[in-house]
Write a protein that binds this DNA or RNA. Sequence first.
DNA 1: GTCTATATACAGATAGAC
DNA 2: GTCTATCTGTATATAGAC
Lengths: 183, 183
Amino acid sequence: MQDKREQIEAVATAAIKRAGIGNVSFRTLAEAVGVKSASVHYHFPTKAALALAVVEAYAQTIQASLDRADRKSGSGQDKLLAFAKVFEDVLADENLCLCGMMASEVMSLDDATRSALTQFFRNAEDWVAGVLKQHSAELNAALPPADIARILMSGLEGAILLDRVEMGRARIRSFRRFIKSLF
Amino acid sequence: MQDKREQIEAVATAAIKRAGIGNVSFRTLAEAVGVKSASVHYHFPTKAALALAVVEAYAQTIQASLDRADRKSGSGQDKLLAFAKVFEDVLADENLCLCGMMASEVMSLDDATRSALTQFFRNAEDWVAGVLKQHSAELNAALPPADIARILMSGLEGAILLDRVEMGRARIRSFRRFIKSLF
DNA sequence: GTCTATATACAGATAGAC
DNA sequence: GTCTATCTGTATATAGAC
C-alpha cells in the first residue's frame, strides 16, 4: 500500500486528466482514498499546492519516458514516434495530457503552477529539437528543429484534445504520418 | 442596444473563451448584463442550453470568416494564413478558441453540445482540405489534404493553448512558417 | 421579461479533539 | 494523521409575484 499522500496524488492526477482541476474536489479525492476531506487538506493545504505537486510529479514521469526513449537508440523517426505515443497513450482512457488540460485552466492557476506548465512544454520541445539535431543526417525537412519541435508538441496536445471529442484517432494518426514525412 | 438574450450570449462567449463554461455562472452573466440570475434562466433554461446556443453562434461566426477569406480569391497560401489568423486573433485577449476551450470540458457537456463541437472542427478541416484541393497546383507537400487539414486545425488549437500559458506567440508563429513551407 | 425568495447541493478551508 | 463539526461562499435551478 502506497503512502496516503501518494495515493491522493495518483487519484488527483487521473481525475484532472479527465475533467480538469476545476472539477476535482477535496471531497471526491478523500472518498476515493478512504479518508475525509480535512485529511486531504493535511497533505495538501490548498488546491494550489495540490496542483503544483501534481504537475511536478507528472513532468518527472514524462521526462523519464522520454529519456528512456532516447537511450533506446533507434532512428530519429523511431524516437519521434515514441514521443507521439507518449501523448497518444493518455487518450486511451479518454484522458488528456495533464499539462494540456491544466493549460486550458491557466487563468485559475497560481504563478508557480503556471511556471511549471511553461517548463513542462519547453522541456518536451527541447527534447524533440535535440533528437532532430542529433539525427539531422536522416532528416529531410524544410523547417528548423525549433519550429518542428513546437509544431509537434502543441500539435499533439491539440490532436488529443480534438480527437477526444469524437472518441476517434484521426488527428493523432495524421501527426504520425507527419513525423514519417520528415525523414 | 442589443436584445438581452444576445447580450447574455455575447458576454457568455467572451467569458467561456477565457475561463471555460465551468467557470461561468448565471450570476456573473446576470451582473454583467444588468439583470438577476433568474432572468438569465428565462432566456437559457439550463446551462446545457446556454452551452449549445453559444457553440452554434460561434460556429456560424467562424464559418462566415472562412467564407469571406475564401471569396477574397488570394493564393492558397494566403487563404491558409487567413485561417491561422482567425485562431491567432482570439489569443490577443488571452482567450482560447471557444470550441477548443469547450473541447477540454467535453466530459461535462451533453451530447448535443458535443456533437456541435465535432461538427465545428470537421467543418473547419473540410474548409482547409477544400482550399488545398482547389490550389493543388501551387502545392508542394508530402501529405494528402485531409492530413494537412487535421494537422492545421488541431495544431492551431494546441498552439494557442500552449502559447497562452506563457503569454507568447512562438508556437502560432511556427505554424505560420509551416503553412509557408507547404507551397 | 424581470423580480424576490428559496431549495438544494457542493465548494475550499479551518479549529480543535483524539 | 485523521476525525467531527462548522464557517463561508457559490453553484444550478425553480416558484410565484409583478
